[in-house]
Amino acid sequence: MLVAILAIAALAAFFGILLGYSAIRFRVEGDPIADQIDALLPQTQCGQCGHPGCRPYAEALAKGEEEINKCLPGGEALVLALADLLGREPVAMDIKEKIPSVAFIEPEDCIGCTRCIQACPVDAIIGAAKQLHAVINSECTGCELCVEPCPVACIQMRPIQEDIQRWRWPYPARQPVESDSAAPLRDAA
């Protein structure tokens, strides 16, 4: 009996020492998961998630300190992608998704105060003090961060117009009868 106890204890002690050594020897630094999350985020830097930019939100997610449904520009697609990456349960978005828009500065009202320029996270507004400001449409991420600071409320968000270049083929309306079932089982392979 005593022999059995001692043998097991010795074995356990040996493996404990081995594990203790391994824990020190093979420690991994850094947090690559945050990079992966950051790559999924839309990089609007809009701050609507409550974090100052996309990277901080990614880091918070990586630490498990945040919900995955905070990114409004990413929408439901992002929630599903994050749920997939982080192995979490998908959660519905708080608010409906917005239509993609860009900021537009009313030229007549702009007083050239540069506050919107300071607010823009991606330098998509050009202009100088006391000069008319203008939005570079192709750079604007639609984050709306410039709308609030404008003292004369001359910035509006305008939906991006559909044109031939931007047009997408619609998802077929003629669905097979079992259209509501999700991805088929056969695809699991």
Binding site: N69, E76, V79, L80, A83, E89, P90, V91, A92, D94, A182, A183
Partner: peptide, 11 residues
Amino acid sequence: PASAQPVTAPT
């Protein structure tokens, strides 16, 4: 009216 209902996972 729902606030944060889980959406169905696509699997």
